[in-house]
């Protein structure tokens, strides 16, 4: 493992500070690159759903709770969510090289595919068959996003104040159609309050 010399003590400390990670594998830099390359290339219809599947279910590098937390941070920070998550996890496991490997993997593969598609689309994009296939894929992809959200919720079994904040975010985004920055920044204090209340109850 070529990167273990990278400030191992700090990593080990921060690692021990996190819940549920003891005994979990710590990916190498090449593993981060290859895994994120896979996430990017299979990531049809929304890469966050795929990142969750690969990182939580297949590789088991993070728990459901940790993934949801990093995704939450990724949404509060500006920029693409999936990129923010890749950078956070890459940094957590392998510092700067890890963050770079994960983000280049995430964007590199799809960029090449998209380049090819852009050229094909210029030629064939208006064919009825192409449109029908795209429409069917879009319908299935929407279900994939909903199914992923349902899966996370059933796995995490949130306490009722946290569930209430989640429902508020759902309604604000889908029914009221408020701009996302407002939702994230406006609901964050309530989410934090709900988390504080829940943790206090458990302590």
């Amino acid at each position: 493992m070529p990167w273990t010399g990278l400030d191992p003590e700090r990593r080990a400390r921060s690692f021990a500070g996190m819940s549920d990670t003891t005994g979990r594998p710590r990916p190498t830099v090449p593993a981060l690159f290859l895994t994120y390359l896979k996430i990017g290339l299979v990531g049809f219809g929304g890469v966050n759903a795929w990142a969750r599947r690969v990182l939580v279910e297949e590789r088991r590098w993070v728990t459901e709770q940790e993934y949801a937390e990093v995704l939450g941070l990724g949404q509060v920070l500006p920029g693409p969510n999936a990129l923010n998550v890749a950078i956070h996890l890459g940094e957590r496991f392998r510092g700067g090289p890890g963050a770079l490997a994960a983000s280049v993997g995430l964007f590199g593969g799809p960029m090449l595919v998209l380049l090819g598609l852009a050229m094909l689309h210029d030629t064939y994009g208006d064919l009825p068959m192409v449109r029908a296939v795209l429409a069917g894929t879009a319908a299935a992809a929407a279900g994939m996003i909903l199914g992923t959200a349902a899966k996370i919720t059933t796995n995490l079994r949130p306490a009722w104040p946290i569930l209430a904040v989640g429902c508020a975010a759902l309604l604000a985004g889908s029914v009221l159609r408020l701009p996302l920055p407002w939702i994230v920044l406006g609901l964050a204090p309530f989410g934090i309050l709900a988390a504080w209340w829940t943790m206090r109850g458990r302590a």
């Binding site: 949801a68 937390e69 949404q75 946290i162 985004g173 964050a188 989410g191 988390a195």
Partner: peptide, 12 residues
């Protein structure tokens, strides 16, 4: 922890 429900609510 407080940001988690917002993240999941927004996926829905």
């Amino acid at each position: 922890m407080g940001l988690v429900p917002i993240a999941v609510g927004l996926i829905f």
